[in-house]
Nucleic acid binder design. Structure first.
Lengths: 129, 129
DNA sequence: CCGCATCCAGTGCGATACTG
DNA sequence: CAGTATCGCACTGGATGCGG
C-alpha cells in the first residue's frame, strides 16, 4: 500500500495527483464544513466503503491536507480535519465546482447534475455506456 | 474503448473527471499556447506515446474541450486546439499550478519541482518509494 | 468505533507493431 | 503523419471478514 507520494514535478500534475482519487474531492468538500469523525464521514458519503474511506484519508494525510486526531476522552473515536494546507484548497474546490457546472451547462447535460450537497451518491457502479 | 462520458453528477467530480488523466492537464497546458498538430504535440511531450496521446485527445474531444480539424491542404495533417469550453479552463489550470507550487513549498519539496515549461518529463516510470 | 488484511475485477496506460 | 490493434502490467478501489 503506502500511497507513497512520488508526486510529479509539474505543479499542475502535482496538484491533480493530490486531489484526484475516486473520493478525495468529496471528502475534502465535506471536511471544509468542519472536522468530522470517521463514522460521520461514513454516514455522509454512503456509497463509500470504510476501507476506501480510510485509504483516501491516509493519502490526504500523507500529502499534508488532512490531520488525524484521536479523541482525548474516548480512545475509540478519531477526528479528521483539514490542515491549513488543506484549507488552502478551498478556492480551488470552489472553482472546480463552478467549472463543473459550467461544463454541464455547455453540454446541455444539466439534468444529471446533483446539488453539491447531495454527497449521497446512489452508486452508479456498473453504470456504463 | 470509447471513453464514454458517464460523468459524475457532482460538479467537482465532473470537473476532475474531465481533466484528470495521466496527460490531459499537460496537453491542455500546451494547447493553451495555441493549436498544434499531432506531431508537434508528440515532440513537445516526449515521454508520451502516440497511442496514449490520441487516446487522451479523444477523451478531451468527447468532453468538448478540444476540437480536431483535418488540414485543408494536406489531408494527412491534423490540428488540435481548444474549444471555447477548453479555453474556459485556463484560470483553473493556472490556479492548479499555483496551488501545486504552494503545496510543494509547504512540504519543503521544491527541489523536485519542474518549471511548468519543462513539459519534458524524463519518465519517472517505476519510480516508487 | 476504527482500522487492517485479503481477494479480486476493472481499467488506465505503456510498449510495440501494423495500416492508410 | 495520423490512427488502430494487441498485449501486458500495475494500480485503484470495491466487497468482506477479522481484531483491537
Amino acid at each position: 500500500m503506502t500511497i507513497i507520494k512520488r508526486l510529479p514535478g509539474l505543479p499542475i500534475e502535482r496538484a491533480l495527483g493530490v486531489i484526484s482519487g475516486r473520493w478525495k474531492a468529496v471528502i475534502i468538500h465535506v471536511l471544509l464544513r468542519g472536522p468530522k469523525r470517521t463514522c460521520e464521514l461514513e454516514q455522509q458519503i454512503p456509497s463509500l466503503t470504510q476501507k476506501v474511506l480510510i485509504q483516501q484519508l491516509r493519502a490526504l494525510e500523507e500529502h499534508g491536507l488532512v490531520y488525524r486526531k484521536v479523541s482525548a476522552d474516548d480512545t475509540r473515536c478519531v477526528d479528521y480535519g483539514l490542515t491549513p494546507l488543506g484549507l488552502s484548497l478551498e478556492p480551488l474546490i470552489v472553482q472546480l465546482q463552478k467549472w463543473g457546472e459550467h461544463h454541464a451547462e455547455a453540454l446541455g447535460d444539466t439534468e444529471r447534475l446533483l446539488p453539491c450537497e447531495a454527497v449521497v451518491r446512489p452508486v452508479p457502479k456498473t453504470a456504463k455506456k
